[in-house]
């Protein structure tokens, strides 16, 4: 357990009439190299949780232990720590600022202290990861389409090769095709670099398909955590937090009502489900 939240509380605008407790007694651990999905309905504290992990907010009380760094209410000099963590915020295209795509993607590596050749290399690599064609390098990021801008912004974070990659609703506002593309990029990136990924999402399908661990939040608390199967089996928990099971599971459950030997509800990927159905078809059951 290399990343652990130990009894963490976070309160916004403390000591003013706008005081708001966003997180309460958070106890949760992530394994290094896991793909973690954080789910919960709007206002449940997901973004606050990941900003703590990114070292952008300091806990009001409690300790966040990440490898050998301890983050608490009076932590200072988190600059070095932040270099190991990459964050893709919601609508990351709103933070582009450079004259050219390549310069914008290179901003992170430059801040890390990479030399020119290394920056060059990382920019090309990141662009190919997100599927941006190399001729866009010298274009202004503001001349691109919304989807392309999103890719530039994400490439800017991937180019830092973070040990922990945090994504706050990265697919928001993309069309279905764009969402699928992005998810597959994330999956491949995760497998290739073996970094820990923390992915915040409203979308159960995304969480079920990609995650090895799911953290279910409601009202500033973590109400369940575990493998997708454990989370989606526990319907009351989901309903309390105003969420639903993934579409695939819904479909399998309705199909199972007509089958003598039910299909496992532990299947979350469409391709696995198709394999399973073909397999059954061959067996003739």
């Amino acid at each position: 357990m290399e990343i652990s939240f130990q009894d963490i509380t976070y309160t916004y605008s403390i000591g003013t009439p706008f005081e708001h407790r966003a997180l309460q007694a958070i106890q949760v651990q992530f394994n290094q190299g896991d793909y973690v999905a954080v789910i919960g309905k709007t206002g449940s504290g997901k973004s606050t949780l990941v900003q703590l992990l990114a070292g952008l907010l300091l806990p009001t009380s409690g300790v966040l232990q990440v490898w050998d760094t301890r983050i608490h209410s009076r932590s200072k000099k988190l600059g070095e720590y932040r270099k190991k963590v990459g964050v893709v915020f919601q609508y990351p295209e709103h933070q582009l600022f450079e004259e050219t795509v390549a310069k914008d993607i290179g901003f992170g590596p430059k801040n890390l202290g990479c030399d020119v050749a290394e920056i060059e290399h990382r920019v090309s690599e990141a662009m190919s990861w997100v599927g941006l064609s190399p001729d866009l390098r010298d274009r202004s990021p503001f001349e691109l389409s919304g989807g392309q801008m999103r890719r530039v912004a994400i490439a800017g974070v991937l180019a830092m090769r973070p040990d922990i990659l945090i994504l706050d609703e990265p697919t928001a506002g993309l069309d279905f095709r764009g969402q699928r593309d992005l998810l597959s990029i994330l999956k491949r990136f995760h497998q290739h670099f073996g970094c820990t990924v923390v992915h915040v999402t409203h979308n159960m399908n995304e969480a079920a398909e990609l995650a090895e661990q799911i953290v279910l939040m409601s009202d500033g608390k973590v109400i369940a955590t575990g493998r997708p199967v454990d989370i989606f089996r526990n319907l009351p928990n989901l309903q309390v937090s105003g969420l639903d099971v993934p579409d695939v599971t819904k479909w399998i459950m309705s199909l199972n009502q007509k089958l003598s030997t039910p299909i496992s509800t532990e299947i979350y990927e469409l391709s696995t489900l198709v394999d399973e159905l073909i397999h059954r078809g061959r067996r003739g059951s």
Binding site: A54, L56, V85, G86, F89, Q95, F107, N111
Partner: peptide
């Protein structure tokens, strides 16, 4: 606030 956080996360140093 959001943009400062985003750039900090990319290693920008304001301090």
């Amino acid at each position: 606030d959001k943009i400062i956080k985003a750039q900090k996360a990319r290693g920008a140093d304001f301090e």
